[in-house]
């Protein structure tokens, strides 16, 4: 499954997020995988991603500087690969 920042994404219902000093830990109960969200910006982005019509808009709303957009998009793509975030409207 590819990552399309033009569409809507949400946090998988199988995932729990725990804030930590460096950002957050995310745990997927289905795959039993632990992921690291290595900044508080990424944590907030992931937590709020379901409130936006597209991932791109979530990134814009998250106050992430233009120069860093790509980094955050690729972080989201990684999280999509491991099923931490899922395309909205699709079954998890």
């Amino acid at each position: 499954m590819g990552f399309d920042s033009g569409r809507a994404w949400r946090l998988s219902p199988q995932v729990a997020i725990r804030p930590e000093g460096f950002g957050a830990l995310a745990y997927h109960y289905g795959s039993r995988r632990l992921s690291f969200l290595k900044s508080s910006e990424l944590r907030d982005l992931v937590l709020s991603i379901g409130d936006h019509p597209s991932a791109g808009e979530a990134i814009a709303a998250g106050g992430i500087p233009d120069g860093q957009r790509e980094r955050y998009e690729s972080a989201l793509a990684t999280l999509a690969d491991s099923g931490m975030i899922v395309a909205a409207g699709r079954a998890s």
Partner: peptide, 16 residues
């Protein structure tokens, strides 16, 4: 890497 350092300083709750 940075994460190892973070881990060595401890987390708010254990992961293991």
């Amino acid at each position: 890497n940075g994460l190892t350092t973070r881990f060595e300083r401890g987390l708010d709750a254990p992961i293991c």
